[in-house]
């Protein structure tokens, strides 16, 4: 094996991405938990934690640029760096969306939800599972797992449709529920976006391993 330091750096970048993925996953999980429990404190922790995530994401980007500039990666290394730059963006956007959810939790405060939250935590659970699963695909360079993961996005999309319709019905029935319902619509929308980002990551993993550019949603 030659260029040892270079290859160590490449391994390190992968580990940094996995770390960022964990951080983003925790944000999503915590923000939805906080929403369900009206836990403003927990929501604020998510908002505060975002700075650390942005920091870590910036570090990944810098490392990638440095590898490109100094090591001229080729072939699968080049694809890995390219994929990481995209995945990095997706993960960073995912945690931003978690922050948005947390902000809504803060805005709602103690005000009771207009209905028991069932589908939204389900969406969050699927999104987090997708994230875990695609991170595993990334770390194992496993395109099959990435393909399989991307399929879960359909469930999230279906749930989003269902939640949205339900909330619209509630709003039509009782205009007083509009404030809370529109908040929840946004949360559902954010989770749906998180699912899309997870799907993007699946695409990046497939490209990274095979070189094929695929559309999975």
């Amino acid at each position: 094996m030659v260029r040892e330091q270079y290859h160590e750096e490449l391994t390190k970048v992968r580990q940094m991405v996995l770390k960022l993925g964990e951080m983003a996953g925790a944000s999503i999980k915590n923000s939805v938990e906080a929403l369900c429990d009206h836990n403003v404190e927990q929501a604020e922790a998510v908002i505060k934690g975002d700075a650390g995530i942005d920091d870590h994401s910036a570090k990944i980007e810098i490392k990638c640029m440095r590898l490109l500039a100094l090591q001229q990666p080729m072939a699968r290394d080049l694809r890995m760096i390219g994929a990481v730059i995209k995945i990095n963006l997706d993960l960073e956007r995912m945690s931003d969306l978690a922050v948005d959810i947390a902000k809504i939790t803060v805005a709602i405060g103690d005000e009771k939800h207009i209905k028991p939250l069932i589908d939204i935590p389900r969406m969050a659970k699927i999104a987090c599972e997708m994230l875990d699963s695609v991170l595993q695909a990334f770390s194992e360079s496993n395109p099959d797992l990435a393909y399989k993961t991307a399929k879960c996005d359909d469930e999230i999309d279906a749930l989003f449709d269902q939640v949205r319709r339900e909330l619209i019905t509630l709003m039509i029935e009782d205009p007083r529920k509009i404030a809370n319902a529109s908040h929840l619509t946004f949360v559902a929308r954010y989770l749906e976006r998180i699912g899309d980002h997870a799907t993007n990551i699946c695409e990046s993993v497939v490209y990274m391993v095979t070189g094929d550019r695929v559309k999975l949603n």
Binding site: V2, Y6, A75
Partner: peptide, 19 residues
């Protein structure tokens, strides 16, 4: 060749994973 070589040895050479 430089983005997605087919042969493993090509890939190993151009990514510096030789020997």
């Amino acid at each position: 060749i430089f983005e997605r070589p087919v042969e493993k040895s090509t890939e190993n050479y151009i990514t510096g994973r030789f020997g």
